[in-house]
Amino acid sequence: MIDTTSNDYADEDAGDDDDDTEDLVPTLVARNVHVRYNSHADRDPSTSLLRMRRKNVPRGSRAEVHAVRGVSLTLHQGESIGIVGSNGSGKSTLVTALSGLIELSEGEVLATSRPALLGVGAALRPKLSGRRNIMLGLLALGLSRAEVNNRMKAIIKFSGLGDAIDRPMATYSSGMRARLAFTIATEVAPDILIIDEALAVGDRDFRARAANRLQEIRDAAGSMIVISHNLSEVASMCNRVIWLEDGEVVQDGEADTVLANYESANPSPKKAEKRMKRRAMRRRIRAREREKALEWAIENVDGDIAIPPDSTAPSGPAASEQAADPAPRPSDGGVA
């Protein structure tokens, strides 16, 4: 842990004084949260049972997974915390624990009210229509049937699902499913909203709607925890970021600082992507050159000396790299 201060107001951050938290009302406090569970661990099928005994390799059995290892954090009113970390670092398990949905192995979570968790796999009923899912979801959140019926029109309009609302949810695309889940989870404005990668699959229209609604929630002094691999999204939504790795907090602090550190530790995959693209482009150019040469050779099959017509044009790897570089890079909205 590099920095565990939960104070994100830089101007007040003159030392760890007692009056730091005076106007910061905590809405969620997690203390030393641990989550362990047992899982089946299979043996490596390429080693035979006989050899395993000889070499004393452990056989497939139940293994303990220690997904979250002693995370503490405090979320304040109106605050948004981003959580970043590689796949399998325990982010989702952590937020499920923070929502009070699974048993903690150690530690405790205190909150002003139960956080609403919004995940990609939000459990809706696939065979039921969107409309019935809205009804059931909101009844589960404690609304009455009459209330839901009154608001149904507005809810469906917000979801933007149109006619699809009466089709079984199993026919929805992942983006449509995300719309539905988001609509349900935010219909009863939660004090604490936890978003686990749920906005990633939405289109631009949906993202805009979602952003508006999230701003409304924040304006109403609600607080938020956002898991996302889109670092620019995290940077724009959160003033504070927690970097999680192997179930432990690597760093907790101001968004810019933590994101910069996280990026330098995990070089953006986009760079690798660019390299791959450049290589593919080079290959394509070389192939085109070869093709041209072949065409020219076929055309001039009767002649005795074959000289490519554009022999003066640059060729070879160095030149093709130059040519490939200014190639348009789609979907480059990353944080450089």
Binding site: D18, P26, T74, G100, E108, V109, T112
Partner: peptide, 14 residues
């Protein structure tokens, strides 16, 4: 400190 100052926080993992 924040736990002590906030009376309205309730345990949700119990």
């Amino acid at each position: 400190r924040s736990v002590d100052s906030a009376v309205e926080l309730k345990p949700i993992t119990q």
